[in-house]
């Protein structure tokens, strides 16, 4: 750490980046109904209130069902794309992969309204399944980015050796490839789960009368009296995401170690 001003700037930057998340628990434990300073005193009342809100429980159940389905679906599709991207050369490769990665930069509003218009036009009621479809589209690029890392770090000669020793392509994949990329798969599952749990716009447009957790949260933001409870809920969500991310990062690093590669950076 030679350059002093630069490191001070970086630390300040990190502090601002974390400012909202650091404030969250302060208000969650604050014994006052107004989300403002000065603080009133310590209470766990708002966390208790969470247990007594049935609508919240239903929204949580919806979100969990969606997030688990999305994680599995997006990771399965991501496996195909990542394997194709790292092992094969095929016509229009760049264009096809670029197109699949497009949701990464497209504004979510565009994805959401186009899906909604199609559903309305087909006369289908939107519901949990349509949110799953939308979220999978959104999570697939992240899954591909993570899995591509695992696949490209894997030594290809291991697969060739298995084939030479008489394994079929499928058993090679199951016995050799899958164990080697499994840390990447777990990381991808966790990341997709986290993204889906947090995603608001697509869920908001497509939820119909089955709200997810963020959609429920959005509805509550209008009622000032409910805000402390929302802060408590937010604290739990943030802690949950951080725990999931730390687990995902641990698996990603374990995968890198298993492949014998030096760590070059975080996700993406």
């Amino acid at each position: 750490m030679k350059a002093r001003p630069l490191s001070i700037f970086a630390i300040l930057y990190l502090f601002v980046l974390y400012a909202p998340i650091l404030l969250l628990p302060i208000f969650a434990f604050n014994d006052g109904t107004v989300i403002a300073f000065p603080l009133q005193g310590f209470t766990t009342e708002w966390f208790g209130l969470l247990l007594e809100t049935p609508a919240l429980h239903e929204a949580t159940r919806n979100s969990l069902v969606i997030a688990v389905s999305v994680a599995v679906l997006a990771t399965c599709l991501g496996l195909f794309a990542a394997r194709a991207a790292t092992r094969y050369r095929f016509p229009a490769k760049g264009g096809i992969l670029g197109f699949i990665m497009l949701p990464l930069v497209l504004p979510e509003v565009i994805v959401a309204i186009s899906l909604l218009v199609v559903l309305m036009q087909l006369g289908l009621d939107s519901g949990l399944w349509s949110i799953v479809l939308g979220h999978t589209l959104l999570c697939m690029p992240f899954s591909i980015a993570i899995l591509q890392g695992s696949f490209s770090n894997m030594d290809q000669s291991l697969e060739e050796a298995a084939i030479d020793l008489g394994e079929t392509p499928w058993s090679t994949f199951r016995l050799v490839t899958l164990p080697l990329v499994s840390p990447g798969i777990i990381a991808s599952l966790l990341i997709c789960f986290t993204i889906s749990l947090d995603e608001f716009i697509i869920a908001f447009f497509l939820s119909g009368n089955a709200p997810t957790l963020p959609v429920y949260l959005w509805g509550q933001l209008r009622f000032p009296a409910r805000l402390p409870m929302i802060m408590a809920l937010g604290t739990i969500l943030v802690v949950l995401s951080v725990v999931l991310l730390v687990i995902a990062e641990t698996f990603r690093r374990r995968g890198l170690r298993r492949a014998g590669v030096k760590d070059a950076g975080g996700f993406l």
């Binding site: 095929f90 096809i96 899906l115």
Partner: peptide, 27 residues
């Protein structure tokens, strides 16, 4: 090799075509 690659990439590609390209074309 090109054919195998295309087969491998087809599930996510078809998914993106159905749920991204078609809806975008619709709007």
């Amino acid at each position: 090799e090109g054919g195998k690659g295309l087969i491998m990439v087809s599930p996510p590609l078809v998914y993106a075509l159905l749920l991204l390209a078609a809806p975008l074309a619709t709007i």
